[in-house]
Design a protein around this nucleic acid. Structure first.
Lengths: 239, 239
DNA sequence: TTTTATTATTTGTATGACAATTTAATATAG
DNA sequence: CTATATTAAATTGTCATACAAATAATAAAA
């Protein structure tokens, strides 16, 4: 219901050649190996380096340009754009960061944004969620209860993500929607499988859930702040 | 200094064919004319519709795929992805929205996010800004004072944007960086040239500025909240 | 009825050619 | 010698065509 998309999960085309090339170049940029402001080798050189046709290579470059990493001009070449223009609020970019920088630091940076955005999202969801979305939220919270009773980490991860994702959707604000995907990607890419959580965490979610269902934005916000302040969420803490 | 990129501003290639085609298709999707979940015409059909080669068309589709709007598979075709995957936190996407939906509503939605993110950005900037960034912030605030004394709307807009943009940069948090570009694009695309502001607004900025320079995160945050609550900021209010 | 093979459709990739853009070198004029 | 205009060269931009790969739909076989 929340996804009428029958295609395989979001980044279907890992096998696609231009995506592989794009990932490789992206990681070169993100790691600093290809310096900001520098000109990357011209198309024919890159083609032979990667052993692909110009068609595939150019599609890769277009993808990276769309993320704010590259910019091309005739006669000049293709340049690595200033970091201030890189769009880190993009799931694919986040995937590409995997293993490049210190994961703990990267996750704590993300938490720094999440703490700003998610409480407000909860408040907006409490006010703007449709009846259909509230029904769905009930369904998901019931699943959460069930999973907690018979605990299994993978099941918990899935239902936990569905819960937070649905909250972003329920803001019915276009600018909050992408955080559902960003959060999902962060979890799937950087999640720590350590996990000393369970029962207590359910209660935190319950407070958020009940406040949203009651239409109480302030309480939902406060509950979310508490949840994100708690040491139990899964992404690594602080630096 | 904040931009070592000599290329013309961010979306240089409006003249680029595949970008024009991408914009046209994107607006079809964003307006709802091309429904979520539907299959768009196949490549050859689109090529003749737009009068471009398959190369150009495919580069356009790759661009839209990168924004989360489309997804392609052999034999199936290219599908409009569910709205929940569209990445509205992308300057190009925001440009494409121009004139499609009610601007006031769109801007008020953005304000709903900005109120969550920017106060926290100010707090982080107060704590994490480098000496260089603090020097630059002083320079910009001085410009603000000058512009206020001899008021000119375009000059004000420019320095105002620089101010807010530098704050996002000064968080030194990768996930806050993109908001500088997003804010800039929102202003340049949707700004109301009505403008009944001037002196008073400078004081609001002064409070933010002084708190950041003093390294007082809480005060910076509070000042930013006040600024965004005030009726004087330029994007349309509420719905 | 179920499984397997075939076929058709669409995107994916490769190649070669030429156009457009703009820096840099060169020639020309003063 | 300097300044300006012209020319040339390098790189991306666009086009056309051909074939490969993937997969849904269909047909055939068990």
């Amino acid at each position: 219901m929340t996804n009428n998309n029958n295609f395989s999960s979001i980044s279907t085309s890992s096998r696609s050649l231009h995506v592989q090339v794009a990932r490789s170049i992206a990681r070169g940029i993100l790691s600093g190996e290809l310096a900001e402001g520098s000109i990357v080798p011209n198309e024919m050189t890159l083609c032979s380096q990667f052993g692909v046709s110009r068609t595939a290579l150019r599609e890769a470059i277009k993808l990276l340009t769309s993320k704010g990493l590259l910019e091309s001009r005739p006669k000049i070449g293709t340049k690595v754009v200033n970091r201030a223009y890189w769009n880190f609020l993009d799931p694919q970019m986040i995937e590409w960061m995997d293993g490049l920088s210190d994961s703990k630091y990267f996750c704590s940076q993300f938490l720094g944004l999440r703490r700003a955005v998610e409480p407000e999202a909860c408040a907006l969801a409490a006010i703007h969620a449709t009846e259909e979305q509230r029904t769905e939220l009930s369904r998901i919270f019931n699943q959460m209860v069930e999973v907690t009773e018979n605990f299994d980490l993978d099941s918990w991860t899935e239902v936990d993500l569905s819960f937070h994702r649905l909250i972003f959707n329920s803001t019915n604000n276009d600018f909050y929607l992408p955080f559902g995907n960003i959060l999902t990607t962060m979890f799937k890419t950087f999640i720590l499988h350590s996990s000393k959580h369970g029962g207590v965490c359910l209660d935190e979610h319950r407070l958020i859930y009940e406040a949203i269902m009651a239409g109480d934005g302030d309480r939902a916000k406060a509950a979310s702040v508490d949840h994100l302040q708690s040491k139990k969420h899964r992404l690594p803490e602080a630096i």
